[in-house]
């Protein structure tokens, strides 16, 4: 490729800090943050699997860590993150069809994603508590 002149200060399109924070903007940011968090959460999940494949001692250690108070807090956060990112993904699928992009529906879907993720996470842990106790 030929050298592109870089000395000219070209006008830049306005970025995040220019705009008043909006719900849909926050949802976009949270979708990305949850994605990055899940990226590292998968590593923990795989470490647990590898421990289970290694030896009874390694499995017991991994189970003790994931079953500890701190472990459960991380798992609770992980489950909300996963559910929120999944609902956000479903929102993107709806947008892919060309629907829900208008001012009314994108707000409705943003609120449904927040409410749905919280409700489903609580429901999930109630089910876990019932099944496991």
């Amino acid at each position: 490729m030929s050298q592109t002149p870089r000395s000219i200060d070209r006008p830049l399109s306005p970025h995040l800090q220019i705009y008043r924070p909006m719900l849909t903007m926050m949802m976009s940011i949270v979708h990305r943050i949850t994605g990055v968090a899940l990226y590292f959460g998968t590593l923990l999940l795989v470490l647990w699997l590898v421990a289970a494949a290694t030896s009874p001692e390694a499995y017991r250690l991994a189970s003790a860590i994931s079953g500890s108070f701190l472990g459960l807090v991380v798992l609770f956060g992980y489950s909300w993150t996963l559910i929120h990112h999944t609902l956000g993904g479903i929102r993107h699928f709806i947008w892919d069809t060309g629907h829900g992009l208008g001012p009314e529906w994108r707000e409705v879907m943003a609120k449904a994603t927040i409410g749905g993720s919280v409700a489903l996470t609580v429901l999930l842990w109630v089910v876990i508590w019932i099944v496991k106790s």
């Binding site: 017991r60 489950s79 999930l124 876990i128």
Partner: peptide
Amino acid sequence: TALANIPLLLVFLGILIAVAGSTY
């Protein structure tokens, strides 16, 4: 991959819950 993740992770979650707390 996003589409594939949805049903796969639903089952995956169920498996994890079933395994949690069990012996080796």
